[in-house]
Write a protein that binds this DNA or RNA. Structure first.
Length: 566
RNA sequence: UGGGGAGUCGUCUAAUGGCAAGACUACGGGCUCUGGAUCCGUCUAUCGGGGUUCGAAUCCCUGCUCCCCAGCCA
């Protein structure tokens, strides 16, 4: 399946697995699972869990299941199930025939609940939600027993069956475990097992009107699937005693729950609640908006599955709260795209130049190497003519120190073409530059024997008449602060939204791009990596998304200069 | 102030009583028909205080800081 063995490093979970294997625990099986709740789209944080779980199974010749934890029909939707399946597959993982749903186990889960009631370890409680909260106590004060705690087993069984039969209203009763209302671990204070919810489930429809709570369902799902190592995030650490308690009381197979720190990423948010809010309030165009840290957003942005996997492997697995630097993700996508994309030329901020000594009407087809990193990528031709566009920022009338692009009297090379010299600037009456007149040196055509004259700068360009228009969407970080939750008193994370996270350009691109297909990726020379948008691009109107800009040491120099002037 | 966790370069992760290592970032330089890539180099870390030991990031004691838990969410 996946060949990435590059950054496989040790971590504490692998040590546990290796020790278990050495002991012959679980018949030396390794069985993991990725258990999403279908209440939102998957994001890069889920990718970390996916890479971990599937990666471990792969490394130890085990298996990893894809299992939907669909126990709360109030929040879950079929659309989310489909998107999750698509995203896990796109990331490159295969669960073969092991696609499971918690809802497929509802019968078994219910049988076990009756078993727990019969053993006297669970009871039906008539307290309201508010009362249960009051009886639970606080962090420092113990709770007190529910007045219904000592109901006879037969009465509990009868009430549970009637709950299931739909005799009672939502919220009127719950099934609770009988553990210890004085436990310092709040999870052990007679936790709820089943609640009444007369809500249609995406899969079981109206078969059920009682639904299991997470703690009851999850351990049993793991047990049923004979999971050996049940990996989850840190906030479930103090649920582990309950996870174990249920399985021990029931006398069923007991997987081992192991917790690791979830991923946080700088300059973005990774909570389903916040992401949902961005979608619902229209701060982005949808779950797959290229600015979103969702798998579908990253995909549309132009990220590759490989780059995401490499990133997840490199951030590692530990128990420390962390905020990974988004620059690391950007590093991996650049690394990948550098090797695999063809270079093309696109001018985002056109400035017209006219080469006065080049024949009017002549069009030359010049050869260009597609990818200097990949000889097999071949060559293409691009049309050169008398009138061209270059980038506005590649010309300075009064060049400052270290600027080695076009300026009055200066020479630069046009990539794959000739060396040109700036001869004259034409302005309108307002002083705006309209066009620049240049001369070219016919001896300097790229590839020619005498073309090796050195000039300091090389510019990308397109022909005025032989280029095509394209919409280019420049995406930037969604938030202006590394930690979006760092806000003024009274404000929330949305106050840190980056107003410039999307800039739309009307660009000129080389004509060969007419054949680009949705999803195709390119390097726009000297600008960055771009892909053809999979939703909005059409043959009539090409739309490119900027995946990530190139590293730009010139931009750094400029920033430094700007700072020094202040 | 109950319980559960965690503290190592700016960031992430190693080192499992024996030279604190790597990646990213930042910075400097070589090379370059992409100010890209690449190559070379530099900076920066064991939360504090005691103790054990020839030797402590690691073991012990103590203090501090941060995160999670009072859903009929997961």
């Amino acid at each position: 399946m996946i060949e990435d063995t590059t950054t496989r490093s040790k971590n504490f979970i692998k040590e546990i697995i290796a020790a278990d294997l050495a002991k012959g625990k679980n018949d030396s099986r390794v069985q993991t699972r990725f258990p999403p709740e279908p209440n939102g789209y998957l994001h890069i944080g889920h990718a970390k869990s996916i890479v971990l779980n599937f990666g471990l199974a792969d490394e130890y010749q085990g298996h990893c299941n894809l299992r939907f934890d669909d126990t709360n029909p109030v929040k879950e939707e079929e659309e989310y199930i489909q998107s999750i399946i698509e995203d896990v597959r796109w990331l490159g993982y295969d669960w073969e025939d092991r696609l499971y749903f918690a809802s497929d186990y509802f019968n078994r889960l219910y049988e076990l609940a009756e078993q727990l009631v019969k053993s006297g370890k669970a009871f039906v409680c008539d307290l309201t939600a508010q009362q249960i909260r009051e009886y639970r106590g606080t962090l420092t004060d113990p709770g007190k027993n529910s007045p219904f705690r000592d109901r006879p087993i037969e009465e509990n069984l009868d009430l549970l069956r009637r709950m299931r039969a739909g005799e009672f209203q939502d919220g009127s009763r719950v099934l609770r475990a009988k553990i210890d209302m004085t436990s310092p671990n709040l999870n052990m204070r007679d936790p709820v097992i089943y609640r009444i919810l007369h809500t249609e489930h995406p899969r079981t429809k109206d078969t059920w009107c009682i639904y299991p709570m997470y703690d009851w369902a999850h351990g049993l799902e793991d047990s049923i699937e004979k999971i050996t190592h049940s990996l989850c995030t840190l906030e479930f650490e103090d649920h582990r005693p309950l996870y174990d308690w249920y399985l021990i009381q029931l006398g069923v197979y007991r997987p081992q729950q192991i917790e690791f720190a979830r991923l946080n990423l700088s300059y973005t948010v990774l909570s389903k609640r916040k992401l949902l809010q961005l979608v619902q309030e229209g701060h982005v165009t949808g779950w797959d908006d290229p600015r979103m840290p969702t798998i579908s957003g990253l995909r549309r942005r132009g990220y590759t599955p490989e780059s995401i996997r490499h990133f997840c492997e490199r951030v590692g697995i530990a128990k420390k709260d962390n905020i990974a630097d988004i620059a690391l993700l950007e590093y991996y996508i650049r690394e990948d795209l550098n090797k695999r994309t063809s270079r093309v030329m696109a001018v985002l901020n056109p400035l017209k130049i006219i080469i006065d000594n080049y024949p009017v009407g002549q069009v030359e087809q010049l050869e260009a190497i597609n990818n200097p990193e990949d000889a097999e990528a071949g060559i293409r031709t691009i049309p050169f003519s008398r009138e061209l566009y270059i980038e506005q920022e590649d010309f300075q009338e009064e060049p400052h120190r270290k600027f080695f692009r076009l300026a009055p009297g200066r020479e630069v090379r046009l990539k794959h073409a000739y060396i040109i010299k700036c001869e004259e600037i034409v302005k309108d009456e307002m002083g705006n530059i309209l066009e620049i007149h240049c001369s070219y040196d016919p001896q300097t055509k790229s590839g020619d024997a005498q073309s090796n004259r050195k000039v300091k700068g090389t510019l990308h360009w397109v022909s005025v008449t032989n280029s095509i228009e394209a919409e280019v969407r420049l995406y930037d970080r969604l938030f202006v602060k590394a930690n979006p939750d760092d806000v003024e008193e009274g404000a929330d994370f949305k106050s840190n939204l980056n107003p410039q996270s999307l800039e739309i350009k009307s660009a000129r691109v080389e004509p060969g791009l007419l054949e680009a297909q949705p999803g195709d990726r390119f390097q726009f020379l000297r600008r960055g990596y771009f892909c053809v948008d999979i939703k909005d691009s059409t043959p009539e109107k090409l739309v490119f998304n900027r995946t990530v800009p190139l590293r730009d040491s010139w931009a750094r120099i400029e920033k430094m200069n700007a700072r020094q002037k202040q």
